[in-house]
Every structure is written in structure tokens, then in C-alpha cells.
Simulated assay, not measured.
Amino acid sequence: MAQSGSSSGNLFVEGGAGTLKLLAYLALAVVLMVADHRGGYLDTVRTSAGLLTGPLYRLAGAPAQLAHTLSDHFTTQRTLLAENDVLREQLLLANARMDRLAGVQVENQRLRELLGGTRGLQLNVQLAGLIDIDLDPFRHRLVIDAGSRRGVAEGLAVIDGEGLVGQVLSVTPMNATVILVSDPSHAVPVQVVRTGLRAIAYGTGRTDRLEVPSIPLSADLRVGDVLETSGMGGRFPAGFKVGTIEQLHPDDTRLFAVAEARPAARLDRGGEVLLVWSAPESSADPVGPPAPAGRMREPAASGENRP
């Protein structure tokens, strides 16, 4: 019984001390609140406490901030990749359009050169495209996409923007075959622009070489002289450039000279040619450009003299 009384007394004592401590803390808190409200004495303490707890707050919020930053980064990266793909596609499309425009510009320039080759001449012209080319050493031919249905006839002269290409050899309703001036079996009457000397230029089987034989040694002929069609024989209209003399040498007999000339036409290049034939004086304009192909009269219908 004595032990039990001692135990209850200890509990009472401990309970009294706890109550006194609580009352002391409450009194101190009240004093501090009143002092802070009256004089603001705890501002410095709060500031110091904020400085100490600020890093803790940032550390606690770091995972969420990191997750938000990574999310923004990946979203921005996906957006940039999508925009990059769109811009790359637009760039490729723009480059393709520019390439096409460049091709159209080159084609326009080539057509201007072709039509410019007949400017000032009393000629009718017809544009034709190339289908096939045969540059065998013993056979130089072109196949064009114009035939008898478009008024093409055998013997018509064929030119490009630089000079004489050849003449029509055979015709079908849809196509025609052109023999080039470089063909070994082809010959064209020419004259020297500078002196008017007449001669015959033969093909050699090479697209970069024509041969003009049987020239008198006394003839006034020089390297660099330009050869053009003379109009003799009525096969080729006069005035078209044929080539330029690059070499002169005597033949085997030493009685005549032989001239080697480079063809003026681009025989192994280009995609279009012009068919030309003489126009009646009443229907031709000697100073203006030739009539468009769709409006000019066909040789068979006009009754003109054809080669």
C-alpha cells in the first residue's frame, strides 16, 4: 500500500510541473506577441528564419521544377523538330520550283536563239523536238516529232540557234528523219562570208569537223573565216551559218587546198530544231520576226517551191 501511494504522488507531482511549464510558455508567447505587435522586435528573427528556410523550400520544390523544365524542353524540342521538317519540305519545294524556273529560262533562251536565227530572212519556220539521235561514225541522223501531218516534206533545211543542222531525209505522218551536215554522205553548198568564195562542205563522220576540199591555192581563204549557206541548188536557203574554218592544208596532189571547219550548229546538244523554207515575197516580212508555227502556211498547202 505504501508503494501505491508513492506512485500516485509522483504522478501528481509530474502533472503539476507540466502544467506550470505550459503556463510559462503561454505567458512567454503572449509577451512576445505583444512586444512584436507593439515594437516589431521579431522582424529580424523572422528574416533570419526565412533565410534559413528558403533553401529548404527550394530543395523541396526542386523535383517538381525539374519535371516541369524537362517537360517544357521535350515539348519545345518536338515543336522545333516538326517546324524543321516543315521548313525542310518547303525548302525542297522551293528549290524544285527554282530548278524548274531555271529550266524554263534556259528553254526560253534556246527558243529565242532558234527564232533569232531566222530574223530578217524571208522564211517560214516550224519548231520540232528531238525524239532520237544516231551518231554512228558512218551515219548521223536525228528523228524529230514533226511529220507530213504538220507539213514537213523531204529536203527541208533544219537549223538550231547557232547554224545549219542538216536537212529532212525522210518523212512519216508523225515523224521525220534528219541527216546532219556531219554525215559522211552529206554535202552543202557554202560561201565564205568575208570574200564570197563558193565551195562545197562535206561531212566527215565527226560532229566537230567538216571538210571543204578542192579550194584553189590562190583563193583568199584564212583560218577563222565563216562559212554560210550560199543558196545554190535551191536546197538550203542562203545566209545560214555552217561553220568556221580552223585548219588549211594542201591536198595529196598539192594542186588544191583543203579546209577543215567546225560546224556552227550544236549537233550533239539541244532538244529543239527549226524546219525552215523560203516564203513568198508577198507573205514575208523582211524586217520582222517570222510568223508563229501555228499560223504559218504549210509548204504543201501554199504551193511554194520545195527542195
Rank of each mutant, 00 (worst) to 15 (best):
G39N: 09
E154S: 11
S185C: 03
R100G: 04
G129Y: 08
E260D: 09
P289K: 14
V86A: 12
R262L: 06
E162S: 11
I131W: 06
G129S: 06
V152R: 07
E298W: 15
N84G: 01
V165K: 13
R139N: 03
H37A: 05
D72T: 09
L111T: 11
T172Q: 11
G243C: 04
V178G: 03
R198K: 13
L70K: 10
L28D: 05
E83W: 14
A27G: 06
R149S: 02
S282C: 06
E228P: 00
D136N: 03
H140R: 07
R110Y: 04
T204R: 06
L227T: 00
V171G: 05
Q3W: 07
G234D: 02
A187Q: 09
V226M: 06
G303S: 02
N108D: 00
I245G: 01
L59P: 03
T76M: 15
L127P: 02
G243N: 13
H140D: 09
P216Y: 03
D252N: 14
Y57T: 14
L114A: 10
E272K: 09
L115D: 05
P290I: 06
R38A: 07
E107N: 14
E272S: 05
L23G: 05
S302P: 00
G50H: 11
L70Q: 15
H68Y: 12
Q167Y: 08
R119M: 07
I215W: 03
P263W: 10
